[in-house]
Write a protein that binds this DNA or RNA. Structure first.
Length: 417
RNA sequence: GUGGAUAUAGUUCAGUUGGUUAGAGCGCCAGAUUGUGGCUCUGGAGGUCGUGGGUUCAAGUCCCACUAUCCACCCCA
């Protein structure tokens, strides 16, 4: 136990961390271009926030939260999701009083107590964006566009964008009634799980993978046929904007999303290459959430994207993230005097922004050269008594093996071109 | 939470019907004559066989429990 990371968590070692840095860098670039500002919220919140924000009927709240009492007896929950904390901060600091919309993004760990499997961890990381205050479908499309842009820039172009509208409280109520009526006539044909879903959340039956249920739901009424005028228009607008951007999408009335707060737009971006947990990105509109949490009545739209799943998808598609470059220069030394000189010289070059490595392992010269090679150094020099004396070194190009004799003082300039 | 599979060096894996000092590739370290890497060759270090019980003269090998990992379901990123 002592030397084992807790179940469902992963260390990100240097052999992986460069990939994270690359993706995070790309995310920040894209968000900047789209005018989204970063928000960082705490790793834990008052439990009530998630109860209210995510919804008490959801699986997240019912069985997946990391909840505990702190030393003063307050109920605390590790960040289970990114949207409600962002909304909380938005309200707490009165950001709604600023010029709208408010466009935020975050990259954050998320904690859910689940049974781990491929693409599912107890601690995973999400990149998420939110637009608060804009009700236009162009905001929905902008949010989707950020996700699509990131994927495209990473070289992923075989992911499926699926969109749906889950309506608003008014039309969803009508739809649910119609759906329930329909399913009620076929109850005996449904699987046991779906008999429960029929009571709790009938829309979930549409999602069932059991053959007999699929057969039934093929004929089931579709939410898209029950949307009120407002919701229908919004959905049409969204499609218009997505078409304009040239994104291919599939209208999938089965997309329900597990969080209670969604209204109108719901969407997923799915990778078929990473096993059962294929949803890389999921999001939608939540026009009632800000008010629900205690803020003004303002609309919102956003998504969460799983970074681990993104990495899995990249791997499955054979897309390699560029490896970090090796040192510009490796300085090998012979003898104590040379070591002291090398140590200070390396530090000076580093101060000037050069990537310089030296040995700390008391290696022989030969071993230092091997080490330089392993580090993938671009250039190497050896400094011993002769070099200290003559102030000249042979600068070796590690790729070609060529050596050029130059003054020690010229090394920096030589490497910089 | 339900169901299934797996657990041997840092890593990927061998390990014969239970039978002496548990093996290999890769990686790591050191050498192959004097101050220069990559290729090759030679040698070396490194294992509580997941943990704890049990069966047996004898367990890496059989049985049980626990833990962890992987896979599917539920659900989600």
């Amino acid at each position: 136990m002592l030397t084992k990371a807790p179940r469902g968590t992963k260390d990100i070692l240097p052999s992986e961390s460069y990939k994270w840095q690359y993706i995070e860098g790309l995310i920040r670039e894209i968000c900047d271009v789209y005018g989204f500002k970063e928000i960082r919220t705490p790793g834990f919140e008052h439990t009530e926030l998630f109860l209210r924000g995510v919804g008490e009927s959801t699986d997240i709240v019912r069985k997946e939260m990391y909840t505990f009492n702190d030393r003063s007896g307050r109920s605390i929950t590790l960040k289970a999701e990114g949207t409600s904390p962002a909304v909380r901060a938005f309200i707490e600091y009165g950001l709604y009083a600023e010029t709208q919309p408010t466009k935020l993004y975050y990259i954050t760990p998320v904690y859910r107590y689940e049974k781990p499997q491929a693409g599912r961890l107890r601690e995973h990381h999400q990149f998420g964006v939110e637009i608060f205050g804009a009700k236009s479908a162009s905001a929905d499309a902008e949010v989707i566009s950020i996700a699509m842009t990131l994927l495209k820039k990473l070289g992923l172009n075989n992911l499926e964008l699926r969109i749906n509208s889950v309506g608003c409280p008014v039309c969803r109520k009508n739809y649910n009634r119609a759906l329930k009526e329909f399913l009620g006539q076929h109850l005996d044909e449904l699987c046991d799980d779906c008999k429960v879903r029929y009571e709790v959340n009938p829309m979930r039956v549409l999602d069932c993978k059991v053959e007999s249920c699929k057969r039934v739901t093929k004929e089931a009424p579709l939410i898209t046929d029950y949307l009120c005028d407002d919701c229908r228009n919004h959905f049409e607008e969204l499609k218009k904007y997505l078409d304009a951007l040239g994104y291919e999408y599939i209208v999938d009335p089965r997309i329900v999303r597990g969080l209670d707060y969604y209204t109108k737009t719901a969407f997923e971006i799915i990778s078929k290459d990473i096993g059962a947990q294929g949803t890389v990105c999921g999001g939608g509109r939540y026009d009632g959430l800000i008010e629900e949490i205690g803020g003004p009545s303002m609309p919102g739209v956003g998504f969460g994207m799983g970074i681990e799943r993104l990495l899995l998808t990249l791997e499955q598609n054979g897309i390699e993230i560029p490896k970090p470059e090796g040192p510009d220069l490796f300085i090998a030394y012979i003898g104590d005097e040379a070591k002291l000189f090398t140590f200070t010289f390396a530090n000076k070059l580093r101060f000037n922004g050069l990537k310089v490595e030296i040995d700390h392992m008391e290696r022989s010269l030969k071993a230092q050269m091997k080490y330089a090679n392993k580090l993938n150094a671009k250039f190497a020099v050896v400094i011993g008594e002769e070099e200290l004396e003559s102030k000249k070194v042979k600068l070796k190009n590690m790729a070609t093996g060529e050596e050029t004799e130059i003054l020690i003082d010229e090394i920096e300039k030589a490497i910089k071109n």
